[in-house]
Design a protein around this nucleic acid. Structure first.
Lengths: 204, 204
DNA sequence: GCATAAACATGCAATACGGACTGTATATTA
DNA sequence: TAATATACAGTCCGTATTGCATGTTTATGC
């Protein structure tokens, strides 16, 4: 822990707050993953976090504030996972494999729950859009460097990034239904082939 | 109307039932589109349909049965819209434009709400998976004939169909957040270019 | 016509949710 | 150490939901 501690075992207020908030946010995300956004009640979040509703209300007076904070928490996780997947992969094939694994993880599931919920929830959409914009900007830069697209103009890189992310989103979305990973892997490989053809063309 | 009518203005029992059920199912779908799956209560559905909750309970004793019936209704709509988009288009470009328009329509929105809800709802998932399988099979055949992929083996056509549907799903999903249609159209055009490259290669 | 069943309406019971409120323990500061 | 702010717990209340139980109307077989 970075925060200072009192000379005894007693924790400082900042430490107590930070710890409680972290537990609340992670419980919120876990609840969204396991029960869906609609099934995420403040009561259930508190139960999971092992805290009272009073504690939650104290830190996040309204449910919307709790969710907003959880989104920030989730963004950090998603961005880091995405970057790590691409940065650590030795090849493009491995990068896609890592990404695909990522897309069956809790982070992406939670994200999709939020995106769908945001469609019919104006407040949520406002906040999520801003965060998504940040994520997309980061992801685009990551794609640029990994795919060595330095010679391409910004619009092209952005469009390509969006296509890649969309394919992953779409395949992942469908996989939650069928559970048939094999068919989706085949589709993903086919897409990689299409990507290779495009890159060969634009670089020529 | 196809069903027989009594000589007076009185409707037959079958006609009354069919009409009421149709109103309930369309109200259910409309509610899912406008309020999301979580915001769809039987009370609200009945209000929209202009019926009492008693009528709904009579035809669909449990909410799950109402939703299941609505899914069947939705499947028919989605399949028809998809087929029409591809069949009536003079060119591949136009076909994608029509599909893209379709993907901002209520049918697809409702479908996505259901897919996400199904992830954390076992009963819903079971039913939706079966319907999705039917839809995908139909869509694959439609793609095969429109894209003139007759020489390709089944697995290849299926994988390609899934990629196409996934891109549309993914782009559409993201569009609900940003609302920036221009960027997504650019991505879609880029994908069409990738598709053209692939088709040129496999046909060679 | 008239009995009968289906179609539809209305009211009620049980449950869950979010937000507001009050009380208590712990930490900070003067 | 006294005062004050913060962290947290427990409870209550209005609202909304689903399923059920009980009435009322409409169609249909005899």
């Amino acid at each position: 822990m970075l925060a200072p501690r009192g000379k005894s075992g007693r924790r400082t207020q900042g430490q107590r707050s930070a710890e409680t908030q972290r537990r609340l946010l992670e419980a919120t995300i876990a609840c969204i993953v396991e029960r869906g956004y609609a099934g995420t009640s403040t009561t259930e979040v508190c139960r999971r976090a092992g805290l009272s509703r009073g504690a939650q209300v104290h830190h996040y007076p309204a449910k919307a504030e709790l969710v907003a904070a959880a989104i920030e928490h989730l963004f950090a996780r998603r961005h880091e996972e995405f970057r790590a997947s691409l940065a650590n992969a030795p090849s493009l094939e491995q990068a896609f494999a890592d990404l695909w694994a990522l897309y069956s993880g809790p982070t992406v599931h939670a994200w999709m729950e939020l995106v769908i919920a945001a469609r019919t929830d104006l407040g949520l959409r406002e906040h999520l859009r801003a965060v998504d914009q940040r994520f997309f900007a980061e992801a685009t830069q990551t794609c640029r460097s990994l795919l060595r697209l330095t010679e391409l103009d910004e619009a092209m890189v952005a469009a390509l990034s969006r296509v890649i992310l969309s394919v992953l989103d779409g395949l992942s979305l469908n996989r939650t239904l069928t559970g048939d990973d094999q068919a989706h892997r085949a589709s993903l490989e086919l897409f990689q082939r299409m990507l290779a053809l495009l890159l060969a063309e634009v670089r020529r």
